[in-house]
């Protein structure tokens, strides 16, 4: 069986502006299998736009172009808005940064989870509620019956993000894109939310794309890492070997991080080389990893 869930070749996203086109994403190629793929970069590197382009969430007037964008045997390039609506939540799901903004503030959280189930699986009200309660339990919420009837303002950040994960996974998607899923959470809660996400993603044999600016987090959590700079993938490496990264940008970022136990009078500041902005002649690509369930 082919382990590749998503294959993207030469993806570009261009925003037209008065001063000429702005290329937010340039010739990005990658494949995702049943693994945890990290995308790191600073703000404006195009990491979130890449995730949104896969979800079909990049709107007019921006232009999305690619040579290939396949989710299993579905060609995402040919998909209409209607087609994407059927796909989102059912086959690819996305967890965003702050649950405060991604949950509907005037709807009970359980109902929001059940709604996803009903929409995609055309289930009955009772079956959807049952599934939502089971899902809440799966994200380690102790009293699902009580939490089901709570409103978003009544739950903590970590709990809100687990509710989001429950909502995103209830229809059984193949791929989860998590865009800075723990950046709004306290550090001690981060690991717990990630372990719950990891447990579910592995258990279901799903693929995960984790988009983050946090180098430590990505290198300790993911299997593989793409490093993006100015819209391009400048480096691909095994997450555990991020410390041995070759590209001067990745090296510069790692050096600029303050480190416990290695106090330096001055932190080396990243010297940006204009050459990094130039188009890379042969975009990097590595085959997907097939991490079995």
């Amino acid at each position: 069986m082919d382990a590749t869930l998503l294959r993207v070749r030469n993806l570009s996203v261009t925003y037209p502006s008065d001063t000429g086109d702005f290329r937010a994403v340039r010739n990005v190629s990658f494949s995702v299998g049943r693994e945890r793929l990290g995308i790191v970069g600073e703000s404006g590197s195009g990491k979130s736009t890449t995730g949104r382009a896969i979800m079909g969430l990049v709107r007019h007037p921006a232009r999305v172009a690619s040579d290939e964008m396949m989710l299993g045997d579905t060609d995402l390039r040919r998909l209409s808005e209607r087609g994407f609506r059927r796909l989102r939540g059912k086959r690819i799901a996305m967890v965003l940064q702050d649950p405060k903004y991604s949950l509907d503030p005037v709807m009970q959280v359980g109902q929001q989870i059940a709604e996803t189930h009903r929409t995609h699986l055309s289930s009955s009200r009772a079956a959807a509620k049952q599934a939502a309660l089971e899902m809440l339990e799966a994200v380690h919420i102790r009293d699902p019956e009580r939490v089901y009837h709570m409103y978003p303002h009544q739950v903590s950040g970590g709990m809100g993000q687990r509710i989001m994960i429950a909502m995103m996974l209830i229809a059984g998607p193949e791929l989860l894109i998590a865009d800075e899923p723990t950046s709004a959470l306290d550090v001690t809660v981060q690991s717990q939310v990630l372990s719950i996400m990891d447990e579910l993603v592995r258990g279901r044999g799903m693929g995960l794309i984790l988009i983050s600016h946090n180098l430590h987090l990505v290198s300790s959590f993911c299997d593989r890492v793409l490093v993006m700079y100015a819209g391009q993938v400048v480096e691909v490496c095994a997450a555990s070997r991020l410390g041995e990264a070759q590209h001067p940008y990745t090296r510069g970022l790692l050096a600029a991080l303050p480190e416990l136990g290695r106090r330096r009078a001055e932190l080396p500041q990243l010297q940006r080389d204009p050459a990094w902005m130039e188009d890379i002649a042969t975009p990097l690509e590595t085959p997907a990893l097939g991490v079995g369930p």
Binding site: V147, M150, S156, M159, T188, V189, S195, H216
Partner: peptide, 25 residues
């Protein structure tokens, strides 16, 4: 100690789930 572990990145041990509990209504 937990803060120190969490700061190093993803902590596979997960820590205690008690911290995640909901705020009371």
């Amino acid at each position: 100690q937990q803060l120190l572990r969490s700061n190093k990145g993803f902590d596979a041990s997960g820590g205690e789930l008690d911290l995640l509990d909901a705020v009371p209504i």
